[in-house]
């Protein structure tokens, strides 16, 4: 295994957050109560989504700069890993919403932003499927990737400002914000974020290496 330390660190941190997240004492807040523990799992998925989609966009730019097929592979694998974490984020968020607000889905800026980014990358994969020529596919999908990424960022940035209320922390009279997390919760939350980011990038690299190995063997 190459560069072992950060991979093992990621695994250990995630394992720690999984166990400690259920064991530590959390403040008893109205509406969310014990379900606040989900913050250690749900929020990390979104960080991963954003980081992996950013990697995808950066590699799309690098592809257009030199038309090296390597960057196209990186771009598409990062996007698909990102979408995977996005789906996990939607599922964990939906379960959380069911227990604290009684519904699976609400009209909420974060949720809307998330579903919009899923749709954008869904369109990205459909576009890739519909072009047969490899070089052309890489070029066209890189262009769409960059354009769609910028639009997604705008969407994520402006939505909360345009919306009247949100069920997410710190907005619309909700009890707490990420910035005033309880001190013990921080001890779990920050390691969880770092650990999941490491694991997310690792999964992306494994997917990428499998893809490259297959290409070389002509599979």
């Amino acid at each position: 295994m190459k560069n072992m330390w950060w991979k093992i660190a990621g695994l250990v941190l995630v394992l720690y957050s999984l166990i400690a997240g259920l064991l530590i004492r959390v403040p008893d807040l109205p509406v969310i109560h014990e379900s606040i523990r989900n913050i250690f799992y749900h929020v990390c998925m979104w960080f991963n989504l954003l980081i992996l989609l950013s990697i995808s966009c950066i590699n799309a730019v690098r592809y257009l700069a030199g038309f090296n097929e390597k960057f196209d592979l990186r771009s598409v694998e990062a996007a698909s890993t990102g979408v995977f974490f996005g789906l996990l984020g939607l599922v964990t968020g939906s379960i959380w919403a069911r227990f604290s607000w009684g519904v699976f889905w609400t009209n909420d800026p974060q949720l809307n932003g998330a579903s919009a980014s899923m749709l954008i990358y869904g369109a990205y994969f459909v576009l890739r499927k519909s072009v047969n020529d490899e070089e052309k596919r890489a070029r066209i999908s890189a262009v769409y990737n960059i354009f769609a990424y910028v639009m997604m960022i705008i969407f994520l940035l402006i939505l909360p400002k345009l919306a009247q209320g949100s069920v997410h922390p710190g907005k619309g009279g909700n009890p707490m914000a990420l910035t005033d997390l309880d001190a013990t919760m921080r001890l779990v939350f920050y390691p969880a974020v770092v650990g999941w980011i490491f694991v997310g990038i690792w999964i992306y690299q494994i997917k990428l290496r499998i893809r490259i190995a297959k290409e070389i063997n002509g599979l």
Binding site: L119, A123, Y144, F147, M151, F155, I158
Partner: peptide, 9 residues
């Protein structure tokens, strides 16, 4: 398919 998601914002 391609245009609707980028039109949201």
């Amino acid at each position: 398919i391609l245009s609707f998601p980028v039109m949201y914002p």
